[in-house]
Nucleic acid binder design. Sequence first.
DNA 1: CTAAAAGTAGTAATCATTACTACTTTTTAC
DNA 2: GTAAAAAGTAGTAATGATTACTACTTTTAG
Lengths: 124, 124
Amino acid sequence: MANYSKQREAILNELQNRCDHPTATQVYEGVKKVIPNISLGTVYRNLASLVESGEILSVAVGDGKEHFDGDKSFHLHLHCKCCGAIIDSRVQPDKIKGIAQFDGFTPETSVCVVYGLCKNCNKQ
Amino acid sequence: MANYSKQREAILNELQNRCDHPTATQVYEGVKKVIPNISLGTVYRNLASLVESGEILSVAVGDGKEHFDGDKSFHLHLHCKCCGAIIDSRVQPDKIKGIAQFDGFTPETSVCVVYGLCKNCNKQ
DNA sequence: CTAAAAGTAGTAATCATTACTACTTTTTAC
DNA sequence: GTAAAAAGTAGTAATGATTACTACTTTTAG
């Protein structure tokens, strides 16, 4: 079977055993406890391939870093522009504008991105 | 009045006169036609302050660059993982999962981020 | 078992973004 | 209007996340 390595498995495990949205560096720090001499490049490569294969999600909030999420169920990400926290919210997407009353969060703007293949790239 | 400069005005203009989602560098290239010796740092600084003041939106799709959007009305961003295109869609957010039939786009995953202030930062 | 394929560690390079400094424009107070 | 303070800018250097590269190790397929 392709795509096996204990590094890849440890990275996926690390991500599924935590409920936050770590960056590549944070995943690296965590996995190091299991595989002390793992390389940061290996973490980046495997995270990218796990996103590609749909096993994890990539969350871009605009802080210059890519964050990763092991929870693939649909939920909103509340991003605090002050402290940088990323908070999960189970509010349905059609309620985005009325989100204020939930989670003690004051929303200002929201951006939704759907990932996939456009018409042209589909043909190829 | 604070916050005035012809550079800032030209940057806002550039963004509102195009219907795509340019990066800071692309905005820089465009504004250069009006103000040839504008500095890239000035573009970054003003884009950040325009986002801060809510005059434009920042769109992070996870390609390592920050994109900007002069259209503040709510709409989805369809991001093609193959060619990198960012396509606007007027599909309502509660229809995200049924988006396939629109726009000739094949969706795989979607991530929504709401920007604002969390409970703790609200208090300060 | 053994050669090809895939994956890895470690390091160097890339590139978007930010920081910094000396200079210019705008604002404010008289 | 004018002069000092405040805000903004150009240009360059620095930072930091991510990617590329190379020699080496592990896994897979026959």
